[in-house]
C-alpha cells in the first residue's frame, strides 16, 4: 500500500460524521489534562498511555466490525486469555518456535471466533447469548489447562512485540495502527466491507441483493476472534508470561470504545475505526485518574462518570446539530 493511500484512509476516519462530536470531547479532555497536570504531556507518560490503550483498541476494532453487523462478541476476553495460555504452553512446554506458536494462536483465535459465528448463524441464535456461553467455555478451558497459574519463561525473542519501540513509538501501538488501517481499508474500500454495512442495515434486503449473508457474518466473527487473539499474544509478549487473567477487562471496554466511537449497537452505521477514539478516551481517563492520584477505591466510579459524561456531551451536540438542520 502506498503512503498516500494510508494517509487517505486515516484521513477518512476523521471525516466520519459519527465521530466528529466525540473527537471534540477527546480534544477537550486532552487540553484539560495537559493544563492541569505537568506530567500528562511528558514523553514517558504519553508512551505509557498509547501502549496501554493499544490492546483494548485492537480488540475494540474487531468488536466494532461485529457491532456493525448488529452482532456482538462477549467472548473476546476469553479468546485472548485462552490463546495467550495456549501460546505459552506451545512455546514453553512443547518448545515450538515462538513465531510459529504466535501464528498458530492467531489461527486458534480465528477458529474460536468462527465457532461463535457458526453457532449463532446456523442455529439462528442471538450472538449475545451464544458468546456469553462460549466465553465461559473458553475461559474454562483456559483455567483447566493453566490450572490458574501463569506460564513464565516465555522466549525472550518475542518480547519486543510488547515492549519494543519503533521510531520511539511503542510497538503495540504501531501494530494497532496497522490493524486499524487494514480494517478501515476492508470496511470502506472492499466489496466485503460494503457487504458488512449491507448486512448490518438489513439482512433481508441483503439476501435479496444476492449477498452471501451467512458467509459475511461468520467471517466477521473470525476477524474479531483473530484480533482478540492478537491482542492477547502481544500482551503475553509485554508481560513475558502467559497470565490466565489476560483479557478480563477487554470485553466491556471494547464494546464501550466501539460505541463511543460511533458504531451503533443495532448495526449498520459507523466505522470500527472509531473504536480507536473511544479507546483513547477510556485510556486518557484512566491516565488522568492515576495522575491526579485518585484513591484506588474511587477510580472505577470516576472513570464510569467520565464515560457517561463523554457520550452525553456527544449526544447533546448531535441533537443540537440535528435541530439546526431541522430534520
Amino acid at each position: 500500500m502506498k503512503k498516500e493511500n494510508i494517509i487517505k484512509i486515516l484521513g477518512s476516519i476523521l471525516k466520519e460524521k459519527q465521530i466528529s462530536g466525540i473527537m471534540a470531547v477527546l480534544g477537550l479532555m486532552i487540553v484539560i489534562a495537559s493544563l492541569s497536570s505537568p506530567y500528562f504531556l511528558t514523553a514517558y507518560n504519553l508512551k505509557a498511555v498509547i501502549r496501554s490503550l493499544a490492546f483494548v483498541s485492537i480488540v475494540a476494532v474487531g468488536q466494532g466490525c461485529l457491532l456493525l453487523l448488529g452482532e456482538i462478541d462477549l467472548s473476546v476476553g476469553s479468546i485472548a486469555g485462552l490463546c495467550g495460555v495456549i501460546g505459552g504452553i506451545l512455546m514453553v512446554n512443547v518448545g515450538i518456535n515462538p513465531y510459529l506458536s504466535l501464528i498458530l494462536c492467531l489461527l486458534l483465535g480465528a477458529i474460536l471466533g468462527m465457532l461463535n459465528g457458526l453457532i449463532t448463524v446456523h442455529l439462528k441464535l442471538s450472538s449475545l447469548i451464544v458468546t456469553i456461553g462460549t466465553a465461559g467455555i473458553y475461559k474454562g478451558i483456559n483455567l483447566v489447562m493453566s490450572e490458574g497459574r501463569a506460564i513464565t519463561d516465555i522466549p525472550k525473542e518475542i518480547y519486543f512485540l510488547g515492549q519494543g519501540y519503533l521510531f520511539n513509538i511503542p510497538l503495540p501501538f504501531i501494530i494497532m495502527l496497522v490493524v486499524l488501517v487494514l480494517i478501515v481499508f476492508l470496511t470502506k474500500y472492499t466489496p466485503f466491507g460494503r457487504y458488512m454495512y449491507a448486512v448490518g442495515n438489513s439482512k433481508e434486503a441483503s439476501w435479496i441483493l444476492g449477498i452471501k449473508v451467512n458467509f459475511i457474518r461468520i467471517t466477521t466473527f473470525m476477524i474479531t476472534g483473530l484480533l482478540a487473539a492478537l491482542a492477547g499474544m502481544i500482551m503475553v509478549a509485554r508481560l513475558g508470561s502467559s497470565q490466565p487473567a489476560i483479557g478480563e477487562l477487554w470485553v466491556l471496554n471494547s464494546i464501550a470504545a466501539a460505541v463511543i466511537g460511533g458504531v451503533a449497537l443495532t448495526g449498520g452505521i459507523g466505522n470500527p475505526a472509531g473504536a480507536l477514539v473511544g479507546a483513547t478516551i477510556i485510556g486518557v481517563i484512566e491516565n488522568i485518574i492515576v495522575l491526579y492520584g485518585v484513591s484506588v477505591y474511587w477510580q472505577t466510579a470516576v472513570s464510569g462518570v467520565i464515560i457517561v459524561g463523554a457520550v452525553a456531551l456527544d449526544s447533546i451536540s448531535r441533537m443540537g446539530a440535528l435541530r439546526k438542520k431541522n430534520i
Binding site: 449491507a198 442495515n201 433481508e204 434486503a205 441483503s206 435479496i208 449498520g268 452505521i269
Partner: peptide, 14 residues
C-alpha cells in the same frame, strides 16, 4: 424487487 421496500429493498441507514 420486493413489496416491502423499507424492510427488504433499501438499506435505510446508507
Amino acid at each position: 424487487l420486493p413489496e416491502e421496500r423499507k424492510r427488504q429493498g433499501i438499506l435505510p441507514l446508507l
